[in-house]
Simulated scan of single mutants.
Amino acid sequence: MSETSSLPGEANAAGQLPYRQLRMLWPLHRRPEPELLSTPPGYVLRQAGHEDAQSFRELMTQVELGTWDDENLARTTATVVPGGWNIIVHESSGRLVATGMGHHRPIRDLYPDGHEVGWIAASPDHGGHRLGRIVTAVATTRLLDVGAECIYLQTDDFRLPALKSYLSVGFVPHLWADGMAARWRAICTRLNAPFTPQLWPGDQAG
């Protein structure tokens, strides 16, 4: 979700490897499935604006993705590509129930011209409608439309529903640092998903 500065092999002052988020990459020459770009009945997909800030904050609080003041939100949206922040609104209640952003966010030495799919969130009150998958696919498609060639996302091991969603949309694990293969083995076991590190980018076997 948020960029980490650690690169493979770096250690902190105590000689310990810092916590590293999981990273996933979008395969070259692929686009999300068209059916993931439209919402089910009763929901509306649209671009977000400043008027959605408070509803966005409420959703992020609900899914425990940080505290968002005006400065934090402005800093985050400053890197969003044109048309890259999209939300899903529940028609009958008018509530914002899912959000996703597509950023231009290079990471030095790893993704020097990287674009990030970030801050994906969907209300658990509206589960079963694939809303998280939809906003992920929409953000990815928007980045492809602006010419992005390296699209990544960052997440955590315990976010199993999100990981399942990202895999189903088409993202693949990036074995970018020591220990990533073992972490993904555990995740794939819990998700009953194929563990195929030989097919994934990266050369870290630990």
Rank of each mutant, 00 (worst) to 15 (best):
S2E: 15
T4S: 12
L7E: 05
P8C: 12
P8A: 09
G9F: 03
N12R: 13
A13R: 12
G15F: 06
L17P: 05
L17N: 03
Q21I: 00
P27V: 05
P27Q: 09
L28H: 13
L28N: 11
H29D: 15
R30C: 13
R30F: 06
R30Q: 09
E35V: 04
L36T: 00
T39C: 15
P41N: 05
G42Y: 13
Y43V: 05
V44K: 13
V44C: 10
R46I: 01
Q47W: 02
G49L: 05
E51N: 01
E51A: 15
D52E: 10
Q54S: 11
S55F: 10
R57E: 07
E58G: 11
M60C: 09
Q62A: 13
G66P: 10
T67Y: 11
T67L: 08
D69R: 01
D70Q: 13
E71W: 13
E71R: 14
N72R: 15
N72F: 12
L73S: 02
T76K: 07
A78P: 01
T79V: 08
P82I: 01
W85M: 08
N86C: 02
I87V: 12
I87P: 04
E91K: 14
S92F: 07
S93Y: 04
S93T: 15
L96D: 04
V97M: 01
G100S: 03
G100T: 08
M101W: 12
G102A: 11
G102E: 04
H103A: 00
I107Y: 06
D113A: 02
D113G: 09
E116I: 05
V117E: 06
G118P: 05
I120S: 06
I120N: 04
A121P: 02
P124I: 08
P124R: 08
H129S: 04
R130P: 06
R133N: 13
V135G: 12
A139M: 00
T140K: 02
T140P: 04
T140G: 01
T141M: 10
L143K: 06
D145T: 00
E149A: 12
E149P: 00
C150M: 10
C150P: 06
I151L: 07
I151R: 00
Y152C: 01
Q154Y: 04
T155K: 08
D157M: 11
F158C: 11
F158Q: 13
R159P: 04
A162F: 05
K164G: 14
S165T: 15
Y166N: 11
F171G: 05
V172A: 03
H174G: 07
L175D: 00
L175G: 08
L175A: 02
W176R: 12
A177I: 00
A177F: 12
D178V: 11
A181P: 06
A182R: 14
R183M: 00
R183T: 07
W184Y: 07
R185E: 14
R185I: 00
A186H: 14
R190Q: 14
A193P: 06
A193L: 03
P194H: 02
T196G: 01
P197T: 01
P197E: 10
P201A: 04
G202F: 00
D203V: 11
